[in-house]
Nucleic acid binder design. Structure first.
Lengths: 184, 184
DNA sequence: ACCTGAACACCGTTCAAGT
DNA sequence: ACCTGAACACCGTTCAAGT
């Protein structure tokens, strides 16, 4: 006889629900994410989820937050050009892992603490690059919008026939121009 | 006694189905678009749609095509800076009209004849701006990606708190820089 | 406090049948 | 050729009930 402290079926909480949802979306696509399928994966009935995520929309919102939190934190050890490149690389990788969830990033401001940190890293990089303080918000909006659109286009299928090498070159070309423009 | 040439219930065809679907999406949101609701709006049973759109996914694909065909054709009478501005304006307006459908543009290449014409107009504008022939595809991909991401962010909610004037200014700022860079 | 059973009002899709 | 009725296997969500 042993003490079943954390035993029986998986204790269910919000984090575990979102983990299961993201895994399901990755394996079988976003359409396969239903209250019932997520619950099934956790060994619980669909109605048990409502306490933790509100409803289906709340589950999807939580999924977007989880994705935001997967983005790499900015590394202050890097010079600003490398920090910009790390950011675009991180976005593209997240988009490739979760193409359908990634598109939902367009639907609301990235307001999670981790997302603020990532944005802060972009601010720092742009400041280091010489962008004046009062131009930072605008520069951040424009640049992150481009990076997001690029990663979304690549992962969701808009770039269709183009291979990764071409897209890498596109981005490298743009980043060189950008860095020239910033340094001037 | 009169001749009911075009009478009874609306004769149903693919174009009319997509019109009804787009109107429904605009009025009640994309979630309200179901095979049943579209059919109901046309006075027909859901099963009647299958002949024309294949299935639900085919209906949504058709919706994206309809949206692409709403984009304004490039006006060759305009100078290239005005043609670029007309393009971003057209994209933003389309996104505002159909925010949810607009996001689906990231999912596949814009391959409709009208979309090719629009892309051709962007090529022409960039060529007029002095972009060398072999750099046109890359320049077009990068610029249209930015415009698409910007319009999607604005319409779908990512820009959240920012008002139209701020976003207009963002875009104007970028376009001035872009035109300077191109003219150099 | 947390989970379930049963039920309700929906979905997309098929297939044989009608005209 | 084109549309329908009936049916099937699903959905999200509620609510009272169980422990």
């Amino acid at each position: 006889m042993y003490t079943p402290v954390m035993a029986r079926h998986v204790s269910i909480d919000r984090a575990r629900i979102l983990d299961a949802t993201l895994a399901l979306a990755e394996e079988e696509g976003l359409d396969a994410v239903t209250m019932r399928s997520v619950a099934g994966r956790l060994g619980v009935t669909p109605m048990a989820l409502y306490r933790y995520v509100g409803d289906k929309q709340g589950l999807l919102d939580g999924l977007v937050e989880r994705l935001l939190d997967e983005l790499p934190a900015p590394d202050p050890a890097l010079e600003w050009p490398d920090r910009l490149r790390a950011m675009s690389r991180g976005l593209r990788e997240a988009a490739r892992r979760h193409p359908e969830v990634f598109l939902m990033l367009f639907r609301r401001p990235a307001a999670t603490p981790q997302a603020r940190r990532t944005r802060g890293g972009l601010y720092d990089a742009l400041r280091d690059a010489g962008v004046p303080e009062d131009a930072l918000p605008r520069a951040e909006r424009l640049l992150s919008t481009f990076y997001l659109g690029f990663a979304a286009s690549e992962a969701a299928g808009r770039f269709g026939g183009h291979d990764t090498a071409t897209l890498d070159a596109d981005l490298a070309w743009l980043e060189v121009r950008l860095m020239e423009a910033l340094q001037r």
